[in-house]
């Protein structure tokens, strides 16, 4: 049975492997965030319910150019620090407000990212969600994403940083469905419920 743990709550005093969002003090393992406890015989981790995005190597992220300087671009990646993209990495001259799809190449000690594999995205809508809900929006084997694309006839790119680039024929419905996923991410059987909701309203 999954349960919600609060920061500082004791998870176990057994000697098990630990995943993310837990800390060890003495011989005990504690949760460090408000989240859902994922516990098995030899492993524990906590899936957070909200939280800031910190870049990790190989994340595919949707980002926006914030400012143009002499030799490159300052890019907003929805993290606590912006990152810098030298002009040599892009073939075209870009302007502020341009949306990009990029890969995180490297992250330094202060969590500042370096990007590569830059793709220029056409201007479209961006829906912002907490980055911890992104796995829920994609679903197992893209199941949720396929449902969203099918019923709202949209083109969606989900960035790991919680920004969703989308063009849609029915944007309001897509936004409602995404809100529904975000607000109920801790519940089970979400894909079927969202599919029913979209069927009713499309």
């Amino acid at each position: 049975m999954k349960r919600i743990v609060v920061p500082g709550e004791l998870i176990t005093d057994k000697n098990v492997k630990t995943g993310e969002n837990v800390f060890i003090k003495g011989n005990c393992i504690y949760s460090s965030v408000l989240g859902i406890l994922n516990e098995s015989d030899d492993f524990v981790n906590v899936v957070p319910l909200n939280g800031p995005y910190t870049p990790i190597v190989n994340d595919a992220i949707v980002c926006i150019i914030k400012n143009v300087t002499n030799n490159g671009y300052i890019i907003d990646i929805n993290s606590h620090s912006d990152c810098f993209l030298p002009k040599s990495l892009v073939t075209k001259e870009l302007s502020a407000g341009q949306m990009l799809l990029a890969r995180v190449k490297e992250v330094d000690g202060a969590d500042v990212a370096e990007l590569d594999n830059i793709n220029i995205l056409p201007l479209a809508n961006i829906i912002a969600v907490p980055s911890v809900k992104v796995p829920r929006i994609i679903g197992k084997n893209n199941s949720m994403l396929n449902v969203l694309k099918k019923y709202t006839q949209s083109n969606i790119i989900v960035g790991r940083n919680g920004w969703i680039w989308c063009t849609s024929k029915n944007l309001a419905l897509l936004e409602n469905a995404i809100n529904m996923i975000v607000n109920n991410s801790q519940k089970s059987n979400l894909t079927n419920t969202v599919e029913e909701y979209l069927k009713r309203n499309s």
Binding site: V6, P7, G8, N21, F23, Y30, S32, V33, L34, G35, P48, L49, N50, G51, P52, P130, V132
Partner: peptide
């Protein structure tokens, strides 16, 4: 702070 999802040692 806990609602914002910040990592914390306790409340």
């Amino acid at each position: 702070a806990a609602d914002a999802g910040l990592p914390m040692r306790g409340l």
